[in-house]
């Protein structure tokens, strides 16, 4: 076989390459160089797709392995965080905003809040009204530094369930917006992570029945875009220093 030494590979050589890629017999270097060619070589992509279609049914020779419940929770969390991040980028490009003046400090806090579209997108109108009503009820205390609001909604962003209001960068209050029934044997655990932290930090177990005040003494001051989430853990909370149960509510801090 001398196909591979020719400048323009024959259709057969290309199909061989596709077949070996799908089988998995290409070495690391060959795999990488092939994957780099894919975006601009539709013929190669098609050849690969054909071999994938022919061979995929034979994966059924392998016995399934039941994943642990924590694996989906991990995937769900990664996807939720990604969705939130990308939502911010995408909406800043396409959103039609009630455009306030461009002066840096002229935007009123309620406008900044309103303009955070990913926060509101898909969240039910009733929850928005409830959250805004509560936000408006916070007395303005401009002498304590930046103030923050977080609306925690379900991972699918269909329902706001909790909000966090922060009178300062250290004092926060977690407020339920509606009844949340915690299943027997389970508990809600409260977590936070800022963009530059390596991992989430537990803020403790949460009783769903009423508001709860917390002082973030052990943590850096609250910052813009800081992630908060409530996960459903077994009684006593997550056995690890990170969430192991599914996310129930998730949201990011917006400065007012």
């Amino acid at each position: 076989m001398t196909d591979s030494s020719q400048p323009t590979p024959s259709p057969e050589a290309l199909d061989d390459l596709a077949g070996e890629y799908v089988l998995g017999t290409l070495d690391d270097e060959a795999r990488r160089s092939l994957e780099q060619r894919l975006p601009r070589e539709p013929v190669l992509r098609d050849a690969i797709a054909r071999w994938e279609s022919r061979l995929t049914p034979y994966t059924s020779m392998v016995d399934p392995v039941t994943p642990p419940p924590a694996l989906w929770a991990r995937i769900d969390r990664s996807v939720s965080e990604r969705t939130l991040r990308e939502g911010t980028d995408a909406d800043s490009r396409v959103a039609e905003r009630p455009q306030a003046s461009n002066d840096d400090n002229a935007t009123p806090w309620w406008s900044a809040l309103w303009q955070n579209l990913p926060l509101w997108r898909g969240v039910s109108l009733a929850s928005v009204v409830a959250a805004l009503g509560l936000a408006l009820a916070i007395p303005l205390q401009s002498d304590t530094g930046p103030r923050y609001l977080v609306v925690l909604s379900t991972p699918q962003h269909t329902q706001a369930g909790w909000m966090i209001q922060a009178a300062s960068q250290r004092d926060i209050e977690l407020i339920p917006l509606e009844d949340f029934q915690v299943p027997a044997g389970k508990t809600l655990q409260f977590w936070t992570k800022a963009d530059d932290w390596s991992g989430p930090v537990s803020l403790g177990l949460v009783d769903a029945s009423g508001p709860r005040r917390l002082t973030l003494d052990e943590l850096p001051p609250l910052q813009e875009n800081q992630l908060f989430e409530l996960t459903l853990e077994n009684d006593g909370g997550s056995p690890l220093d990170r969430p192991t149960g599914p996310i129930q509510f998730i949201g990011r801090a917006v400065s007012l």
């Binding site: 994966t59 392998v62 399934p64 392995v65 039941t66 994943p67 694996l71 939720s80 699918q156």
Partner: peptide, 18 residues
């Protein structure tokens, strides 16, 4: 995201095996 979860329920165990 519910669709992703449905795909996971359908294929997660088989994919993990493979």
């Amino acid at each position: 995201q519910g669709a992703l979860q449905a795909l996971y329920r359908l294929e997660g165990a088989r994919l993990l095996g493979v």
